[in-house]
Amino acid sequence: MKFQFRLAYYLFGLLLGGVFVVWFLKAKADDKGVEFCYMPNCRVLKDLRSKSLEIDSVARQALDAKWVTLEDVKMSLQYGDVDFGKSNEPYRKGKIYVIEGKTSKNEDITITMVNYTNKVLLEKIEKK
């Protein structure tokens, strides 16, 4: 068989396999609760969202000041960016994570959280 025909068969099979994989993954993604998180930022935020949240007194003062809400923190945990230069370091029997996000008024905020095995402690919220 000539090289042209072998290449055509190979590319056709590769195309069919690619279409099947995309169709299969799309069907899985349409199911409720299925989320594909393979990048480090996405995995950390998903882990922080999955645990129960406790609020420290410093963070409670920021929330009571009304310039930031708990909904802003939740949106930052969904769409924020983890600063890995300051994060993933041992801290009080957990690991500290610094997340950069935005409020509903589009102000930049920095959220510091401590990730324990069974809970997450919201330590402080700062304006940038």
Rank of each mutant, 00 (worst) to 15 (best):
M1K: 01
M1H: 03
K2Q: 01
K2M: 06
K2G: 03
Q4V: 09
Q4P: 00
F5Q: 07
L7D: 14
A8T: 07
Y9L: 15
Y9P: 00
Y9I: 12
Y10S: 02
Y10L: 14
L11V: 01
L11I: 03
F12D: 05
G13N: 08
L14P: 05
L16R: 07
G17V: 00
G17N: 02
F20S: 06
V21T: 13
V21K: 08
V22M: 08
W23E: 14
W23T: 04
K26C: 12
A27S: 11
A27H: 08
A29P: 05
K32D: 15
V34A: 10
V34R: 03
E35M: 06
F36G: 01
C37H: 13
Y38P: 02
M39P: 01
P40G: 10
P40T: 11
N41G: 14
C42D: 14
V44A: 15
R49V: 00
R49P: 00
S50I: 05
K51G: 11
L53Y: 07
L53G: 07
L53D: 08
L53I: 11
L53S: 08
E54A: 13
D56T: 11
D56L: 03
S57Q: 11
Q61R: 14
A62E: 12
L63N: 08
L63P: 02
D64F: 11
K66N: 10
K66A: 08
T69Y: 00
L70Q: 10
E71Q: 14
E71H: 08
V73F: 05
S76D: 00
S76L: 09
Q78W: 05
G80D: 04
D83E: 11
D83S: 05
D83Y: 09
D83G: 03
K86N: 07
S87C: 03
S87M: 04
S87F: 06
E89M: 14
E89D: 05
P90D: 01
P90K: 11
Y91Q: 10
Y91T: 03
R92Q: 15
K93I: 00
G94P: 08
K95S: 10
K95D: 04
I96H: 05
I96F: 10
E100C: 02
G101M: 11
G101K: 06
G101H: 11
K102M: 09
T103I: 05
S104T: 03
I109M: 07
I109S: 08
I109W: 02
I111E: 01
I111W: 01
T112W: 06
V114K: 00
V114P: 09
Y116T: 07
Y116C: 06
T117D: 15
T117S: 14
N118C: 11
N118D: 15
K119M: 10
L122S: 02
L122Y: 07
E123W: 09
K124V: 13
K124W: 03
I125H: 02
